[in-house]
């Protein structure tokens, strides 16, 4: 994510928190955003915007990818809640708990963070750990038939994120900030 995008995002969050997205609040938010990005460049890991004209096609494709992921996420979140609620209320729930290992194709700290967070809120799985080289994810699963099914649901989430392979505001694994 470029610094500019991040500053705009921070301004919007600021305006949302104040509850009045007026011009004045957005301007103050932009100021605060610039200050935060300046003060904590490493912590937020924002990059300078890429040189040259922006690739409109790629930007639109990424935007569509984000929307698709958001829709998928909200649907799965609802399914996950109903599923866990049923397990909690059933007289004798079939939890079948296990820890599964999932090899990852996804790279980049930002997207990996998003992946592990989403998995925790999605049906059947909670992230427990990442391997040292960030190439393997470990998740605790309940309510799934077997390890294969648990893995498949994680790979499905990963598929959505692979389509957005632009780093979030974090440096990629091992690379410079």
């Amino acid at each position: 994510m470029s610094r500019l995008t991040l500053v705009c995002l921070l301004a919007v969050v600021w305006a949302l928190l104040l509850g009045e997205p007026g011009v004045r609040n957005l301007v103050v938010g932009l100021g605060l955003g610039v200050l935060i990005v300046r003060l904590f460049p490493r912590a937020v890991g924002a990059r300078a915007a890429p040189r040259g004209a922006p690739d409109l096609r790629a930007t639109l494709r990424r935007g569509a990818g984000w929307l698709a992921f958001l829709g998928f996420f909200l649907r799965e979140l609802t399914v996950a809640n109903v599923q866990v609620a049923l397990l909690a209320l059933r007289p004798r729930p079939r939890l079948n708990p296990m820890i599964v290992e999932v090899p990852l194709r996804l790279r980049g700290e930002g997207l990996l963070t998003l992946l592990s967070a989403s998995i925790t809120l999605m049906p059947g799985t909670v992230t427990v750990g990442l391997s040292r080289d960030r190439h393997t994810l470990y998740a605790h699963a309940i309510g799934t038939a077997d390890a294969e099914a648990a893995r498949a649901s994680i790979v499905r989430v990963e598929g959505y994120l692979l389509a957005l392979d632009t780093p979030l505001p974090f440096p990629p694994t091992g690379g410079p900030a």
């Binding site: 079948n96 296990m98 820890i99 989403s118 909670v126 427990v128 699963a141």
Partner: peptide
């Protein structure tokens, strides 16, 4: 999710073994 992740990983690293399976399929700690 972040706090769930930290709790789960801390428990695992401190050596709390997960209860596995309930007699049908799966239930492994990979």
């Amino acid at each position: 999710p972040l706090s769930a992740y930290l709790i789960a990983q801390a428990a695992y690293l401190r050596g709390l073994p997960p209860i596995l399976g309930d007699g049908q399929g799966g239930g492994t700690d990979e």
